[in-house]
């Protein structure tokens, strides 16, 4: 788990280099926006935002700030980057975690069913369905879902994270947010579903051919027990690994989905930051994303330790 720290440091350096390579800074964008070009005013602003000096001093300012968990100042929002991000983070986090859980659990379930019925019509339907979803761009799927469920059927809201003018109890508010998240979370989860379906199906077919499954049949265990404990359980391992690997891609995918469903999350924020050349904000978002992905992977590592006794630290047998 300690590997997480060097990863974060490396990403921080990488983000700095990327920002340095980009031409123009937030002050340029700001001045262009207000239409004035006083050199003294610009220098003043640059000093305030830590944008002046050579690359060495700039990096030092950046590193010291980061160490104090200060992500800098957002020119576009005239507020601390940390505060802006914290405001948006819960929405993205909620969407991302629900989408991961939904796509992985649906994938495990459908992939498992497909593997147990392999070669039959159920298997074909699941495999082909997942493949079609996989080939469909997320934004298009999202738009279709909006047209069908929000516009035609009017079952679900068209976008946003909550009903703006509603006066609700705490429970009502939670329900309201959940209701708003149904379409975006399903859209996000479905686009990544195929991966888990195929992985689980493949892993189960492989375990099905293993010696311990044959042995379990020879010992006369009920078919359901063999399917769950001896086929599905060991097959979970590659799927869980994939959840960690995919969390980054899922975060990327959420930018598109947040835009389609106008959800005020990190994705939408990143888009604004790019448009406004608010590089400090962008850097903050990138770093937050890294922390998220690293955190998911730490959780996955812990989960893996639970699932696979072979990676547990204890070596010997207790006497």
């Amino acid at each position: 788990m300690l590997q997480a720290l060097p990863v974060l440091a490396l990403v921080a350096v990488g983000v700095f280099i990327l920002l340095e390579m980009a031409e123009g800074d937030a002050v340029d964008a700001y001045l262009a926006g207000i239409g004035s070009g006083d050199a003294g005013f610009a220098a003043d602003l640059r000093e305030r935002y830590g944008l002046e000096g050579n690359i060495g001093t700039r990096f030092l300012t950046y590193a010291i700030r980061l160490a104090q968990l200060d992500l800098g100042h957002s020119v576009a929002f005239s507020r601390d980057v940390g505060a802006v991000i914290l405001e948006r983070l819960p929405n993205t986090l909620l969407m991302m975690v629900s989408a991961i859980l939904l796509s992985a659990s649906m994938g495990i379930l459908l992939g498992g069913i497909a593997a147990l019925r392999r070669g039959g019509p159920t298997d074909a339907a699941i495999t082909v369905g997942a493949l079609i979803l996989n080939a469909t761009p997320g934004f298009w799927l999202g738009l279709l879902a909006i047209i069908l469920f929000a516009v035609k059927l009017r079952w679900l809201p068209i976008g946003g994270i909550s009903t703006l003018d509603a006066d609700l109890s705490l429970f009502g508010e939670l329900l309201d947010v959940a209701w708003h998240l149904v379409l975006p979370v399903f859209t996000l989860a479905l686009t990544y579903l195929a991966l888990y379906v195929r992985l689980m199906r493949g892993a189960m077919i492989e375990t099905d051919a293993s010696g311990w499954v044959l042995a379990a049949r020879a010992r006369g265990l009920p078919a359901s027990r063999i399917a769950l404990r001896h086929i599905a359980r060991p097959a979970l391992l590659p799927v869980v690994t994939m959840i960690g690997l995919q969390s980054g891609a899922l975060l990327g995918g959420s930018i598109v989905i947040e835009t389609v469903f106008s959800i005020p999350g990190l994705g939408a924020l990143a888009f604004e930051a790019v448009l406004q050349r608010d590089l400090q904000l962008l850097a903050g978002i990138l770093l937050t994303g890294t922390v998220l992905v690293v955190a998911v992977n730490v959780v996955i590592d812990l989960l893996y330790r639970l699932l696979d006794p072979r990676v547990r630290l204890d070596a010997g047998l207790d006497s």
Partner: peptide, 24 residues
């Protein structure tokens, strides 16, 4: 039905492969 394990059981060549690695 009810024959495997109760009347006829089997031991295999590779003892490592005939046990599920993730269960005690």
């Amino acid at each position: 039905r009810g024959i495997a394990g109760r009347h006829i059981s089997m031991v295999f060549q590779n003892p490592g492969a005939s046990l599920n690695p993730v269960l005690s």
